[in-house]
Amino acid sequence: MIIEQVVGNVALLEKRAPHVERVYLQSDDLVKRIQRVVTDHGNELGIRLRDNRDLIDGDVLYMDEHNMIVISVKQDDLLVIMPTTIPQMGEIAHQLGNRHLPAQFEQSEMLVQYDYLVEELLQQLSIPYKRENRKVKQAFRHIGHRHD
């Protein structure tokens, strides 16, 4: 089966099929428009999205009255950064920006993929953080940039 478009997202669906198969993806794979995957029931699928969009956790790839196939994102090894002041937030945002590291935000927390150098930086700057395995809803998008 070739999937060319996302049907919807389980968070927004009013009616769901009784049987659910899941495709478990790393967050990095959410940005791939073309890929071959296997469901947790062993069914092989091709994904070739027509729309230029990233997959997100809970996206429904297929649904009929009996079955649905849903994207589930695997947990990432993250640094959860919890600055306590605006200067701390500004300093770590500046440092991460200089390294071109993508970040996500949930409430008052900044999430970045684990990097031992960032962990050392947080310790040096005395910025509160914790290392945690956590599921993110969308991919960490790396943005290309050149310094001219």
Rank of each mutant, 00 (worst) to 15 (best):
R146C: 14
D76T: 10
G46I: 10
G42P: 07
Q124N: 13
L125I: 14
P102V: 09
H147E: 15
I69Q: 08
I71E: 04
F140V: 08
N98H: 13
E120F: 00
E14M: 09
E132M: 09
G97L: 01
K137E: 06
M63Y: 02
M1D: 07
T85M: 15
K130P: 03
D54R: 08
D148P: 12
P18I: 10
E44Q: 02
D29P: 04
Q26E: 15
V73E: 04
K130R: 11
L117A: 03
K130W: 01
K135A: 11
E109Q: 10
I71N: 12
I86Y: 07
Y114V: 08
K137W: 13
H142I: 08
I56K: 00
R48K: 13
S72K: 04
T84L: 13
K130C: 14
D28E: 15
H145P: 00
I127T: 08
A103K: 03
L55R: 06
Q123R: 15
E120H: 00
Y116C: 09
V31H: 03
D57K: 01
H19K: 15
H94L: 07
F105G: 09
G58A: 09
Q26R: 06
V80L: 09
K74H: 14
N9D: 06
V80N: 10
I71K: 12
D64G: 04
M68V: 02
I69C: 13
D77Q: 14
N52F: 07
H94P: 00
G8I: 08
L117G: 00
V31K: 12
Y62R: 05
D28Y: 06
I2Y: 05
I56S: 02
D40P: 11
K135N: 01
Q107K: 10
Y116I: 05
V80K: 13
N67C: 07
Q35D: 03
Y116M: 00
N52W: 04
G8Y: 09
I143K: 11
M110G: 02
L78K: 07
N98K: 15
V23Q: 06
N43T: 14
P87W: 11
A11Y: 07
L96K: 04
V136H: 05
A17G: 14
S72G: 04
R48Y: 05
H19E: 13
L49K: 03
L12A: 11
L25R: 04
F140M: 03
A17W: 01
E14A: 12
N133I: 11
D77W: 02
I92F: 07
M68W: 05
G97F: 03
P87G: 14
V20K: 05
S27C: 07
D76W: 00
D51P: 03
E106C: 00
E132F: 01
V20L: 01
Q113P: 02
S108C: 02
I69V: 15
R99N: 03
V31C: 08
V112D: 02
M82T: 15
G58K: 05
P102M: 00
Q35S: 10
A93V: 15
D28T: 07
L61Q: 02
D59G: 03
V38E: 11
V73P: 04
A93N: 06
N133M: 07
T85H: 06
I47H: 02
E120K: 09
M82A: 06
R131S: 11
S126G: 02
A11R: 11
V23E: 05
Q26F: 11
G46D: 05
I47T: 06
Q26M: 13
H145I: 04
V73I: 08
K137Q: 13
T84F: 08
R134D: 09
M1T: 15
M110T: 14
N98C: 13
Y24L: 13
A93G: 07
D57R: 08
